[in-house]
Write a protein that binds this DNA or RNA. Structure first.
Length: 108
DNA sequence: TGGTTGACGGTGG
DNA sequence: TCCACCGCCAACC
């Protein structure tokens, strides 16, 4: 299904669907892109595909870690804080529980 | 064509 | 609670 779309394209697609005030993890994004084990690859794609269309700052690592942001983790955290998001172990757990409420259906 | 790197994830010590 | 090791996947040299 939807094999006509490349993995990196799917990743950008999923990340672009992350609503404001909501975050997701690399693993979750990878899973929605069709590769639950490609969290690493997702990070690679994000690093190279830094676009204004893609809120890459809303993608964080699991365990309450930001992961990275070209060495600007502080800036990433500040952007999330501006949206009312405080990155913590609990944050990941909370958003992972509800995800985007049906956004998954559109992502497929 | 093959090996290494990297914005990760999870488990173990 | 923090650090280290192993496993997975895609891009780059």
């Amino acid at each position: 299904m939807t094999a006509s779309v490349d993995f990196p394209t799917r990743v950008l697609w999923v990340v672009r669907r992350i609503p404001t005030g909501r975050v997701s993890t690399y693993g979750d994004v990878a899973a929605m892109a069709g590769r639950p084990r490609a969290a690493r690859a997702v990070g690679n794609i994000m690093r190279k595909c830094q676009r204004a269309d893609v809120p890459c700052h809303r993608v964080i690592a699991a365990g309450g870690r930001l992961g990275g942001y070209g060495g600007r983790e502080a800036a990433k955290r500040a952007m999330l804080a501006a949206e009312g998001i405080v990155v913590s172990r609990n944050t990941v757990r909370e958003f992972r529980r509800v995800r985007w409420r049906g956004a998954r259906s559109s992502a497929r």
